[in-house]
Amino acid sequence: MPDPAHARNAGVPFAPDWFARITVNTPAAERRADTLVARRSLKGPWQAAWLVNALRCMDLTTLAGDDTPDRVARLCAKARAPLAPHILAGLGLTGVTTGAVCVYPTMVAPAVRALDRSGIPVASVATGFPAGLMPLPLRLAEIRYAVDQGAAEIDIVISRALALRGEWAGLYDELCAMREACGPAHMKAILATGELQTLTNVYRASMVAMQAGADFIKTSTGKEPVNATLPVSLVMLRALRDYGARTGARIGFKPAGGLRTARDALNWQVLMHEEMGPDWLRPDLFRIGASSLLSDIERQLEHHVTGRYASAARQALA
């Protein structure tokens, strides 16, 4: 189970005045995001250290229609040992693991077995992922099933239609019910930002999710036409920061979908560091949703250690 160094988000009564008058200047958000990543260059051992931290904050993920217990077990083995032994030795490190393994609800039990005594939590998507277009009682039942199977974190999806119609009270009520269904499991609220149309909607949906008790806010399912982007992430972080200023709660953030290269991992960590500070570069407050990112990070770290890029055939598939 997650063991954060801070109290969970208890949520607050619905407070539309916290976000109703907020509008986001999209060009300004885009300029700020571009400036942040352009002005910081990480090289050599500093780059290697930040890439290792990205591994520690990674939700290693498989969400495919042909997932099997054997595939999940292989993914869990990679989560236990994301770097080859010679890379770890070259870095002078031991015990590096990913932050979590994320699967569908029916794959939670195999993942829990494969990760036994590793300390790596299992996250499960739920609530009719990725569209969320199921009756609310079925979405809540799916959460309870995943928790009963051993999931320590639940990645729920919001009802985009409620956000697009501005029915924020209705969205809040749904999310409160989901938070209750999660019980001891941490709730990560996926906003599916690529389908919310405006950055203003992104800010408002972020605030509603946190008011309802979300422990993390997450950009995307990875299935939308547009997934995580730096401007969207910046807006979500500003909402996270505003919520923290009002309540004292420390909410986590997870970009997901479209992060494929080591450079992406560095860019999002720079964004977190500049906007939230170094405390938000820990697995209890920052996760990267990834299914293909690990291979490029491992490739870059091998180059740092050996001075050579290995063939992709030499790297265990993630």
Rank of each mutant, 00 (worst) to 15 (best):
V122S: 00
L171R: 11
L191Q: 00
E195H: 09
A114Y: 01
P137Q: 10
R160L: 12
M187R: 10
A111S: 09
T219E: 01
R117H: 15
C176Q: 14
V157Y: 00
L138G: 11
A151R: 04
L164H: 07
V147W: 10
A214M: 08
A214R: 12
A126L: 04
S220V: 11
L175H: 08
A146K: 04
K218D: 04
A131E: 13
P225F: 08
A161I: 11
V122N: 00
A114N: 03
D215G: 13
P130R: 06
A212W: 05
K223F: 08
D242F: 05
L230A: 12
L240P: 04
T193F: 03
V208Q: 05
I158N: 11
I156D: 13
C176A: 15
K223E: 08
L133E: 14
A141C: 09
A181I: 04
M207A: 07
A185T: 06
R179E: 06
A189S: 15
I158Y: 13
R117T: 14
S124W: 07
A205I: 09
K188A: 01
V232D: 09
S118Q: 04
A212C: 04
A126F: 10
A189I: 01
D148N: 13
P225V: 13
A126P: 07
P137C: 12
E224W: 07
A141V: 03
G128Y: 09
S206Q: 01
D148C: 10
E174A: 09
L162K: 14
A146I: 09
G128K: 08
A114V: 00
S233M: 12
S233A: 15
K223D: 03
P130Y: 14
E142M: 08
E167G: 07
N201R: 13
E174S: 06
M134F: 15
A114E: 01
G166S: 03
A214F: 12
K218F: 02
V208E: 08
P121L: 03
Q149M: 14
G119S: 04
I120N: 02
I120M: 01
A111K: 09
V202Q: 00
A214C: 09
I143L: 00
A161N: 14
R117M: 10
R241Q: 15
P130W: 05
M210A: 02
R241E: 15
N227I: 00
S233K: 08
G119N: 03
